[in-house]
Nucleic acid binder design. Structure first.
Length: 364
DNA sequence: ATCGATTCATCGCCGTGATC
DNA sequence: GATCACGGCGATGAATCGAT
């Protein structure tokens, strides 16, 4: 397995996907996922997905071989319902989805299926390395310097690249980066797509380890993420992102990792973690938002059932209606006001030490 | 184990539209 | 109006499947 796994092969990426008008971004992918999963957050047999998608007149190979995660369940190939699928099924199509999808492509963990060769488990290492080595390290996320020619030059000069030509792959990759707004990756702020990407990365890393029969304990989620290329390919780095990472990994494990999409698991987990909680089976299946009190930009959409677990992990939960019109500035205002009131109530005096002050503001 | 059928990755050609 | 780059399309041959 060793040799072939490191090879860079274009795979179906030289085949075009019919993205439609550039202004659509990755809408075609978004729709393919919705059709392929038939709107349900459950793993779907690869064969069923393919049939649904090809019947609807969309191409299949690019979604299933580059953007989604494959694994065998009871001997049948399945596509895994993970964070990317969750976003496609529960949120309208926006550039947030496109950027999350670009992350998935660049992160490049798509699992295994029958007939796939070893290299296909990481099908776009050329993109992964182009981003981490050239765009991040050399260009410092100055994305204007990305071009089909530059990609071609990068790929062609790498000894790991195994194909006759690199032109088609390069123009296709550059095209996707453009319509999917890779340029926004230069932001150092914590943004919605980045938060989702972190969850997606953990979903994929954990699944990938599982393919080799390795179960990752929740305590190791953080280091699993750190050792991966997540931080290199998820846009420009910053202290804000580093700080947010800790909170989000905690939220991820609090909600049960990949089990967060199973209401049954979440229910059991909630009853186990918070014994005296009242469980409500909600009719509303729109997701909710978990916001971290330290920074309202740390906003993660989660399955409705996870609300209690998110609160337990120290997040505030906002409802679907609120979420749709989430006003970041307003949220900050309200929270600052509350914090000031708390300080006043706590009789803050000018003679307090920094430590005392910190203790007061840190509570909850 | 064999061999035709099917699926797949790769490549090159073509029409289109942009540019000078 | 010549040239070029683009993505779409489909030909090609290799890999794999599955019926026997």
């Amino acid at each position: 397995m060793a040799a072939g796994e490191q090879d860079w092969k274009p795979g179906s990426f030289t085949k075009n996907f019919s993205w439609g008008p550039p202004a659509n971004g990755l809408l075609e992918l978004y729709e393919s996922i919705r059709i392929g999963f038939d709107g349900r957050m459950e793993d779907v047999p690869r064969e069923v997905f393919r049939q649904r998608v090809s019947q609807s007149g969309h191409s299949e190979y690019i979604p299933i071989n580059f953007f989604l995660f494959n694994k065998s369940k009871n001997g049948i190939d399945h596509l895994v319902a993970d964070e990317l699928v969750f976003q496609a099924l529960t949120a309208p199509h926006t550039i947030n989805f496109d950027k999350l999808a670009l992350f998935a492509l660049n992160f490049s963990y798509v699992g295994r299926w029958t007939g796939a060769d070893a290299a296909q488990r990481r099908p776009a290492l050329w993109a992964n390395k182009y981003i981490s080595e050239r765009v991040a390290r050399e260009f410092g996320w100055s994305t204007k310097r990305i071009s089909a020619n530059d990609i071609e030059q990068f790929v062609e000069t790498n000894p790991r690249y195994k194909a006759k030509s690199a032109r088609k792959l390069s123009t296709n990759l550059n095209y996707i980066y453009e319509i999917g707004h890779l340029s926004d990756f230069s932001s150092r702020r914590v943004e919605l797509w980045w938060v989702d990407a972190l969850f997606l990365a953990l979903d994929r890393l954990i699944e990938d380890r599982e393919l080799d029969g390795e179960q990752i304990e929740p305590e190791r989620y953080g280091s699993l993420l750190t050792r991966s290329s997540f931080a290199q390919v998820a846009g420009a780095r910053s202290l804000e992102k580093d700080l947010a990472t800790k909170h989000l990994v905690m939220l991820y494990s609090a909600c049960g990792g990949r089990e967060r999409f199973s209401d049954e698991h979440v229910r059991e987990r909630t009853e186990l973690t918070i014994p005296d909680v009242q469980w409500f089976a909600a009719n509303d299946n729109r997701p909710q938002g978990a916001v971290h009190p330290s920074n309202p930009r740390i906003l993660k959409t989660i399955p409705r059932a996870c609300a209690m677990l998110a609160k337990y992990a120290g997040f505030d939960v906002i409802d679907a209606d609120e979420l749709e019109a989430f006003d970041l500035q307003g949220f900050i205002r309200v929270h600052t006001q509350r914090a000031l009131t708390r300080l006043k109530d706590a009789n803050v005096t000018p003679t307090m030490s920094v430590e005392e002050l910190m203790r007061l503001t840190r509570d909850k």
